[in-house]
Design a binder for these strands. Structure first.
Lengths: 210, 210, 210, 210
DNA sequence: CATGAATGAGTCTTCATTCAT
DNA sequence: GATGAATGAAGACTCATTCAT
């Protein structure tokens, strides 16, 4: 991916997140990427393909990160998944908001690509929860429901977290991990190691120092 | 509000929820409301004012409902707020999705109208949580953070709940109330009365039999 | 069909004939029809549908006219068909040129509509020729080939005939009828009555005094 | 003319014939010629100049061929011209269709270049017809009209002849020669020698074995 | 009360062409 | 000799909105 391509994508992510896909004009996008609207089309297919690319890449990274969570105690594993998800949403609010808000725009074919990734990702959460229940460390009568609640709770982070606020990434992730364990009726651990590991994974996957 | 006005608003709610504000055309809207696009303008101001009206009304109803939650034990009160919120999102997914997703479209003035209502609504949650902590029935070190997590978790319901699924409204509300109490480190009660009350309030406010 | 619709269609016919379908811009068309390019879309579907409409209507008229040629002596009948075709191409060169030149533009579905009409029309010619041969008044070893030659020869009229030139419509039609009979090895008649009839049919079908 | 130039020209001929000049994009052309659209401009001037080149070359060849028709009996000479024209249109339908259909695209200057050649070519036909009438072997009261009819009839071949059909080039040319003579009220000859000669001329001029 | 007609500004996308590398 | 990058202008078409009837 060339530098210009990256600039285009970055501009698109920001605009799509702020004003929505349909609320973002191609000229606006071109201006933000500092090229002409005609040149835009050297670096992308259609506007929709650009969106699809953004969403898939983001989900692929999220998935790649989630796969690096060690398969240890279900509590630690869930804490790891939560920390990772929350950290990602905190440091990449634009990308994650696009993933969460603009699925309805996609054509059926593109949508299925995105949904497939999302499902695969959620399966990791489901498995962890099930394991925890089977192992007796989680106590919950409606694990599916709880999983949905959990995910939405974590997605929300990209809508309100600000790096300029008083809350550090560490604190954020730790608290959400704690909340998740509580929701599943598990005993609270010390998650500092888990959160630390999640932090380094996220840092690697997104090539950013946290 | 005339019958036609209601038809317009209902059509707008459905379309805005499904395709987004910018993804919905005025002609499409007219067609769904079964009038001509010119006639539309007898029943609304601009497209944006229509959106503002939808959002404000929805928030007003939510607020009106929340104010009917009795100021009893903080646990019951929180359970009531959660049940109410979740039930509303379950039976009115279109309206609530519009409220949650289309704020960025509004002009600053219109947005402040919406935000004001939202803030007022959230204050009720914040107060309840604080009371619970003060009373020692909740145990949480970051109540603000938890409140945000809680709200996002509940908002999510409108994105995935289906009345055709196996989950009844009662079960949904009860489980979410339980999750909320867990998140705040409170002891689980029997929330059936609280949920029942919430149900009747929602039923009244939205004039629908549940 | 409203007056404006007619103006649009007339402008389109002229422009498509002069500059080709792809050579004619929508703004150019709007200007020629004296409305804005946006208003254009109140009176037409897509540009292609406009073209299809023009072609089908023209062919329908040609067909309607051809069906009024009396089924008398094959020589007279052929002379009638030729006169009619030639007169039409002489007085409506724009429409007929569009029909003859822009078929390749159409989508398969639209094309089949046009081709169906064209085929039906040519069948009338084919039948007449066959009858003439069967009756022994025409002598030709390759009637299909001759029919194609005949049609192309007559189509050509719209490319060069000028009403301002020295040649009257009567003379034009009479000579072409004579040429056609010669091509089929038939004996030359006096075609004045036949041509006169064709003239009045064309006049009626196109609502123009010749 | 380099090999690449030939490839470009061949691609252009095919595309212009199939989709029209304005219906053919420069990128499409480049792709068909298997070079980049930028490289295209090493082998051509503007798109219009490319068209002009194609048309002029085609007409030049037609003219060169026509000049090789021996000045014998006017009937044989006309038969020769017709055979040549028809054969050319049969074996080079793309080129001849471009010549016949895309004149309107050209700028006045370019157009005059084309028209000059066309006129010169048609003069050969006119002379032949006049000679025949003067010599008493043709009997026609409107030679100009007949010439136009003749030419259009022959041009038409490129629109419908298929080498995969049952009709051989020989049969095609022979029948058209016969038709032409009939149209001019001449006596039918045996044109096999004339057609044979036309065939070899066309074969030479276009460097193709027929 | 209702709507067909109208439009300027906008939509996304492609156009033919140039030029630095 | 070849081409990726670049673009102003234009392509067809839709937008939200107004207004006379």
């Amino acid at each position: 991916m060339t530098l210009t391509e990256q600039r285009v994508r970055a501009a698109a992510v920001k605009l799509f997140a702020d004003k929505g896909f349909h609320g973002t004009g191609i000229r606006e996008l071109a201006q933000a990427a500092k090229i002409s609207s005609a040149s835009l089309y050297h670096y992308m297919g259609t506007k929709e393909e650009l969106l699809e690319g953004i969403m898939c890449e983001c989900l692929d990274r999220l998935l790649a990160a989630a796969r690096q969570v060690p398969a240890s105690d279900p509590r630690d594993r869930l804490a790891g998944l939560v920390a990772l998800h929350v950290l990602t949403h905190a440091i990449e609010p634009a990308q994650t908001r696009v993933v969460d808000h603009e699925v309805h725009v996609l054509s059926p074919e593109a949508r299925s690509e995105v949904v497939r990734r999302r499902d695969e990702y959620e399966r990791l959460w489901a498995e962890t929860i099930e394991e925890g229940i089977a192992a007796g460390v989680f106590h919950d009568t409606r694990p599916t429901l709880t999983r949905l609640a959990l995910l939405e709770m974590c997605n929300g982070v990209s809508r309100w977290y600000s790096p300029h606020g008083p809350l550090s990434l560490e604190e954020l992730a730790t608290h959400f991990a704690r909340l998740a364990i509580r929701m599943l009726g598990g005993e609270e651990n010390d998650f500092s190691a888990t959160v630390g590991h999640a932090r380094s994974v996220v840092s690697t996957v997104w090539k950013r120092t946290l």
